[in-house]
Design a protein around this nucleic acid. Structure first.
Lengths: 193, 193
DNA sequence: ATGATAATATATCTAAAAGATATATATCTA
DNA sequence: TAGATATATATCTTTTAGATATATTATCAT
């Protein structure tokens, strides 16, 4: 069976207070955006479902000139369903890693391009690490007493750990690839039709 | 614009030799399965497209009793299109990380469940690391001279680096969560409807 | 030997997620 | 004042994940 996880992201967002679909998207992006994203294509249809299941309620705020604000509020059973999901162990995810698929077939192109590929990756990881460190300092200085801070920092440090590991991997990989430079590239498969 | 990456996984698989859709799936799973997967739902429709674009050719091998074998072979232009893609820098991927979404809302449930969540994750990462180490030894002993081996090991070490980092993170996180145990959980949002 | 299950093989279907687009107004900035 | 950005709702298409349908052959255990 398939599990719709966007559902829980929306219920989670609504624990921060009543919001419109637009608010939900913006708030998800600025809070969990580094490891989770939702588009309107998921949010609006799901909000309808959640209302039908009485997990959220909807109120319409009429605004002059502007389009009406459809504001959604979490219900008790919505909060319960979120909590139930939080209790369940997270699924193991493999996920597709594009750079690895490219490097796996690296013998099909000349070595310089593989090196370039890894260097490009290395730069984006350096950029990411900087970003995480800025966010970490910013969080600690602007919300020092928020009881959610420990949880926020835990998710942030996940990113930092992974990114640092990938920077190490990139460094090692560049050395390993450079040691191979003299071999024949690219390789032409024998059975081409 | 959206990019269909399954396409390149299939072209890549066909560099190993002519195969049926079934072969392609099996071979992808046993080679790049740790960081890439394809289902029949992508493979069969894409093979049709690739034939129409002359990136692969199709031959039907009639078998007695058994269903016909539809065998696909990479063409020169198919190989070219694969190589072109290998040259392009891999896109930065964020991806959804389920355990982080759960921990981000950790204050909604009691601490023991958050600890359990992280311990469960830790176990699965330990299992993964063992698996990677088995594969690494197996690769090095069974294909010691294969010119693709360096590329295979590079992708494997990516996994090892990430997994080791996540084990460190899990250890740290358990300590941080335990230091919080006395605080009030769970938190009830004020504006429940 | 028989029955069960795993493997081979092709193919389709649904659902989830990503991402782009359409529409409309308001506010901010150069 | 023109252009860009922000607010706000909503739909559409494509890609990916995963389950199911069908049918035959091979293998394994009782």
């Amino acid at each position: 069976m398939k599990h719709n996880k966007s559902r829980y992201a929306i219920l989670g967002a609504l624990t921060w207070g009543p919001q419109s679909g637009y608010d939900i998207r913006r708030n998800i992006e600025t809070s969990v955006g580094n490891f989770w994203s939702e588009g309107y294509g998921q949010i609006y249809p799901l909000l309808k479902e959640l209302v039908a299941e009485a997990l959220v309620t909807k109120t319409v705020e009429v605004q002059e000139g502007k389009p009406d604000r459809h504001v959604y509020t979490l219900t008790k059973s919505g909060l319960e369903q979120l909590r139930q999901w939080l209790h369940e162990p997270a699924e193991m995810q493999t996920g597709r890693i594009e750079i690895l698929l490219k490097l796996f077939f690296g013998r099909q192109i000349s070595m310089n391009y593989n090196l370039e590929q890894v260097r490009h990756f290395q730069n984006s990881q350096r950029f990411l690490l900087d970003k995480y460190e800025v966010i970490e300092r910013e969080l600690q200085s602007s919300h020092p007493t928020d009881p959610n801070l420990p949880y926020w920092l835990i998710t942030l440090r996940y990113g930092k750990h992974v990114t640092k590991a990938l920077l190490l991997w990139a460094e090692e990989t560049l050395i390993q690839l450079e040691a191979l430079t003299d071999e024949t590239h690219p390789f032409i498969p024998a059975q081409l039709s």
